[in-house]
């Protein structure tokens, strides 16, 4: 069903999804448990986490430090393994993947946006944006063309030749968003995307993420800032590794 939907959308048969409610599941976690072994003790970071994010949703995950939100995001991003439970990403079971397969899913399904931008310092903006395409084996000429169009989309076409060190924080984060989008992922995972930015720049970044979401891509934002979280459709609160039930009310319609 999801495949049919995305196929139709890619062919332009369906308009980009502007509706917030979709019946297609993008991320589905059931009874996810994760613990770290520290010495002889086990630190139980995630306890029976159930999470359901539909395609086209924009949600935020909030929680104090140590609540397990980073771990949750790492599991969603297939950077980390979980101990038990089930994780379906775009209806694909994500479990015990080989390194190569995990790399492939990260490349094709997921775009990462980090608090500290994580651009490669010795590559210019264009080259940074093109990195995911490089790992897809796209030819140099083609990936530069695609990367240019995405840089243009975040308003940085004129900055293509600049190194990250020559850019402001907001610009760097826009490059990072362009890089996250370039492989046309299903989900954008943003880990404190505005954590290192002033509030005005933060809003600009959120504006871009909202536009991304409106183009049909599911967006998950981890944040501890309420004003940022409130710009998403739904807030998922984590406390001591559990999803807080009680206020599943959409923040904004």
């Amino acid at each position: 069903m999801n495949a049919l939907y995305s196929m139709l959308m890619e062919q332009g048969a369906l308009p980009p999804c502007r509706c917030t409610v979709s019946f297609v599941s993008m991320i589905r976690l059931t009874k996810i448990n994760k613990s770290y072994r520290i010495g002889q003790h086990a630190l139980h970071v995630l306890r029976d986490v159930d999470l359901h994010i539909k395609a086209g949703e924009m949600v935020s995950i909030m929680g104090s430090s140590g609540s397990g939100k980073s771990t949750l995001l790492n599991i969603l991003g297939i950077l980390d393994q979980y101990d038990s439970g089930d994780y379906y990403l775009d209806e694909t079971p994500i479990r015990a993947l080989s390194e190569r397969k995990a790399a492939m899913y990260r490349n094709r399904f997921i775009g990462f946006v980090f608090q500290s931008f994580n651009l490669l310092p010795f590559k210019n903006a264009l080259e940074n944006v093109a990195v995911p395409l490089y790992y897809q084996g796209v030819s140099r000429r083609k990936r530069n063309r695609i990367a240019t169009s995405y840089l243009d989309r975040v308003g940085l076409a004129d900055w293509a030749e600049h190194l990250p060190s020559e850019m402001s924080g907001g610009q760097k984060q826009r490059v990072a968003i362009a890089r996250a989008l370039v492989a046309r992922p299903r989900v954008i995972l943003a880990d404190e995307p505005t954590g290192a930015l002033d509030s005005e720049t933060s809003y600009q970044i959120m504006q871009i993420l909202e536009e991304v979401n409106q183009s049909g891509i599911t967006v998950v934002v981890v944040t501890h800032e309420h004003d940022i979280a409130e710009r998403t459709h739904r807030i998922i609160r984590l406390h001591d590794g559990r999803v807080q039930t009680g206020d599943p009310v959409p923040v904004r319609q």
Binding site: A103, M104, R106, N107, N118, L120, V131, Q136
Partner: peptide, 16 residues
């Protein structure tokens, strides 16, 4: 190390 982490997040395979 950090760069390798970034590349892995972007989809770099162990082989590459």
């Amino acid at each position: 190390t950090k760069e390798i982490g970034i590349r892995k997040a972007m989809g770099a395979t162990p082989f590459s």
